[in-house]
Simulated scan of single mutants.
Amino acid sequence: MPMTTATIRLLAGAFAVGLSLASAGASAQTAYPAQAIKFIVPYAAGGSSDTRSRQLAQKLSDSLGVPVVVDNKPGASGNIGTGQIATAKADGYTIGLGNFAPLAVNKALYTMPFDPARDLAPVALIERGPMALGVNDKSPYANPAALIEDAKRNPEKLNYASTGAGSASHLSTELFKEQAGMNATHVPYRGGAPAVNDLIAGNVDFYIELPSLFLPHATGPAPRIRMLAVAADKRVPGLPGVPTFKELGLPDMVVSNWFGVIAPAGTPPEVIKILNEHINRALQDRQYREIVESQGGEVAGGTPEQFQAFIASESARWTQLIQQKQIKVQ
């Protein structure tokens, strides 16, 4: 039985409505984010990286409208947790913290099961933390020049703390020694807290680390740590009384321990874009910025491409130093 014109029009309309509904349903199914996001932190709970990750995760959760759940996976200088990010499903529901060591340094020190440049997608650089030179408050060194002079006069006398071979504190100090033309003995620790404790106790002569680890012991009526210099381009707002190494005659001593957000390689570009936009929005929050700056850090931000270029430049810089100094992990 042949269809009338009216019937054809009715069927066409119904088909169009069906397509529209199907399209809306597909869109609803693929909208991001539609479920909780896991945020892997490759370091132990309670440290500075964990604290900052939790602060950012809360901001992202509020902004994205889904839980952003921090999952600590410490070990192997950040390689374990970063490796889990690299091998996760690339759908935007597993992201994490990527920082100085596993993204720019560890490949020159370890045999790694993943390649940061190949297996990870940069999302956004979130913070740069200029390193600071700290000594015991009873130390005879009132400034870096006095420390350098004593180290040159007595090459075997001074020692310094770090959080292990290839860490930001270790490589910063190796650069400092090279720039200053001095020597000092490396004393590695298993973390920042025991290193700070031994600096306070006078068991090590100096320690180059993030100011946030020194600040609780460098303020108040009876400070136990004195910061002599900060490795930044200009004075840090949270440390206005601490000069830069550049001011003191070491212009190339500009070093930060930094971190950002990363995802597995292959994460859809539209998902990366959404995450980047929400991260940059979170970084503009006044309260968040005040926390970072009060601890000597610098809020970053920017595009995934800018973060990728930054990682590449940091990797080249520190790989050269590691090879030049023949630094090995123990």
Rank of each mutant, 00 (worst) to 15 (best):
T5A: 09
T5Q: 15
T5S: 12
T5H: 05
A6F: 05
A6V: 03
T7Q: 12
I8G: 00
R9D: 11
R9N: 06
R9K: 08
L10S: 03
L10V: 10
L10M: 04
L11E: 13
A12M: 14
A12D: 08
A12S: 10
A12V: 14
A12R: 05
G13V: 12
A14N: 05
A14W: 08
F15L: 13
F15R: 06
F15N: 02
F15W: 05
V17N: 04
V17R: 04
V17S: 01
V17H: 06
V17M: 07
V17T: 12
V17Q: 03
V17I: 15
G18I: 01
G18R: 07
L19M: 09
L19C: 09
S20I: 09
S20P: 04
L21D: 01
A22E: 00
A22L: 15
A22H: 11
S23W: 06
A24L: 15
G25R: 10
G25I: 09
G25S: 11
A26T: 09
A26Y: 14
A26R: 14
A26M: 14
A28N: 08
A28Q: 09
A28E: 12
A28L: 15
Q29K: 04
Q29M: 11
T30D: 12
T30F: 01
A31S: 15
A31D: 08
Y32V: 07
Y32H: 09
Y32D: 05
P33Q: 11
A34G: 14
A34W: 07
A34Q: 14
A34R: 13
A36E: 15
I37W: 12
I37E: 15
K38T: 13
K38L: 06
K38N: 07
K38D: 02
F39K: 00
V41L: 07
V41Q: 01
V41D: 10
P42R: 09
P42H: 03
P42L: 10
P42I: 02
P42W: 01
P42K: 06
A44W: 02
A44K: 04
A45H: 01
A45P: 01
G46F: 03
